[in-house]
Amino acid sequence: MKPAPFDYVAARSLDEALAALADAGEGGKVLAGGQSLVPLLALRLARPDVLVDVNQIAGLDRLVVDDHRLVIGALVRHRAVELDERVRRAFPLVSAAAAQIGHVAIRNRGTVGGSVAHADPAAEWPTLLLALDGEVEVASPRGRRVIGAGDLYAGYLTTTLEADEVVCEVRGTLPEGRIGTSFLELARREGDFAIVGVAAVLAREGDVVRHCRLALSGVGSTPVRARGAEELLAGGPADDAAIAAAARTVADEMDPPGDIHGSADYRRKVAEVLVRRALCAARDEIGTVVAQ
């Protein structure tokens, strides 16, 4: 389990990193926390020619929390998000999700930007990004651009990022008004990739659901938004029956993979269960008594 040979560039600035990546062409790879890349190197499943280490670059680690807007620098570690009180108050689903990434040692090392760019469909950050209607800001020698969450993921471990682009910042929002959120995962051990994960956001006016976002991990080659269920709930009540009815539709919206941890059929079944539970938890977080 020793990596194949590679060159290593410890970039001191973003420009240096971008130049090194541009030089490397398709053979370059960005090294941030190394959470996923280092095991892939050790197993020789990834064989980049050049590793561009971005850890020393200043300015990529800010964490800004407004009431409804979250801005996370690409180099912010999962653990920093998990422990941030502002995040816990304004974005409790983000705190909950961060706490379920691997184990503490992994969370101390792994970065938000790295996880978003690695695009594992069973991971927490890509799913959160969808639930937060988020976007990423990326840099390249051509300048900066912003990619919406819906346009970022192209397939299993694949994004629409160019080989010479580096993720600089991840941003997300929650709707204003009375909202409730939740993040639930089903994994066979604490810290494992989810068999299915659900991020839910509910906004209500009176007893009526004004807005709903549901994002799922583990049920496709990318994280997915359950648009059908969202639409079914919007404009109606958030009682148990409505939630159960919405949850029943999610299985039809997805084409989950099957592996030794759960077949496609099993993932569909538990996705329904988890969506129902996540929506109920989000609703209950709003703190309103709901008529049965």
């Binding site: 095991p39 066979r188 051990r189 494992d192 990739f193 030794i260």
Partner: peptide
């Protein structure tokens, strides 16, 4: 776990689930 063709499917601790203190 091996598949029917004799290939092991549990080659790392992502797939071979050793319990930890949390379990």
């Amino acid at each position: 776990i091996y598949d029917a063709a004799g290939q092991p499917l549990t080659g790392t601790y992502m797939d071979y689930l050793l319990p930890t203190t949390t379990e």
